[in-house]
Simulated scan of single mutants.
Amino acid sequence: METGKLIKELRLKKGLTQEELASRTEVSARTIQRIENGEVDPRAYTLQMIANALEVDFSLFVENEPKEEVQANDEKNWSALLHLSGIVPLIIPTLLLWTNKKDKTNEVSHHYRAAISMQLCIWVISLIGLWIYWKTNQSIPIIIGLLIGSLVSIMNAVFALFDKPLINPFIKN
């Protein structure tokens, strides 16, 4: 239940009008009305005053707050971490992260496929670089390949945090 609806329900159970609740707090009747209608989100201090006036515990309002934004940020953070695990071309850390979060976040499978395909690209570039090193004794291709792969993994992690399309030729966004 939204905080405003909860306040209204508690106020009505106490038999108070919005004006009476406002007089028991340092909040105007118009502000009480706007809170109850969901037009504004009350500050913690205002919620404390309302909780005191309604004789309820302040935590009732705090526990009632929606956690969707926190979950969305957590999902973005895990997706970014998944891409950062691609810096090291080992599939094990990425696989461990994916198995830990695959049932808890919505878009983790998309980010997992992107991170794994990037790691596979880094492996292929590394193998080609090793072959060039073996034939010509030049280590520059392998170093450039690893740097580009790491840079793309870091950029994808940042893009995952800001909901931007990922850099990956093999995965459609």
Score class of each variant (00 low, 15 high):
Leu54Ile: 02
Leu54Met: 02
Glu55Asp: 11
Glu55Arg: 11
Val56Arg: 02
Asp57Gln: 10
Asp57Leu: 03
Phe58Asp: 04
Phe58Leu: 10
Leu60Thr: 12
Leu60Gly: 08
Leu60Arg: 11
Phe61Ala: 04
Glu63Ser: 15
Pro66Trp: 05
Pro66Met: 07
Pro66Ala: 06
Pro66Ser: 12
Lys67Gly: 04
Lys67Trp: 06
Lys67Ala: 08
Lys67Ser: 10
Glu68Ile: 02
Glu68Leu: 05
Val70Thr: 14
Val70Met: 14
Val70Cys: 11
Val70Lys: 15
Val70Ala: 15
Gln71Arg: 15
Gln71Phe: 15
Ala72Tyr: 01
Asn73Gln: 15
Asn73Tyr: 13
Asp74Gln: 14
Asp74Leu: 15
Glu75Tyr: 00
Lys76Trp: 01
Lys76Arg: 10
Asn77His: 07
Asn77Leu: 09
Trp78Val: 15
Trp78Asp: 11
Ser79Pro: 00
Ser79Gln: 08
Ala80Ile: 00
Ala80Pro: 01
Ala80Phe: 00
Leu81Cys: 13
Leu81Val: 10
Leu82Lys: 02
Leu82Pro: 01
His83Val: 06
His83Leu: 03
His83Trp: 04
His83Asp: 02
Leu84Trp: 02
Ser85Lys: 06
Ile87Ser: 01
Ile87Arg: 01
Val88His: 04
Pro89Gln: 05
Pro89Ala: 07
Ile91Gly: 07
Ile92Thr: 15
Ile92Asn: 09
Pro93Gly: 09
Thr94Pro: 09
Thr94Gln: 11
Leu95His: 07
Leu96Asp: 04
Leu96Gln: 09
Leu97Ala: 00
Trp98Ser: 02
Thr99His: 13
Thr99Tyr: 14
Asn100Gly: 06
Lys101Ala: 10
Lys101Ile: 04
Lys101Cys: 07
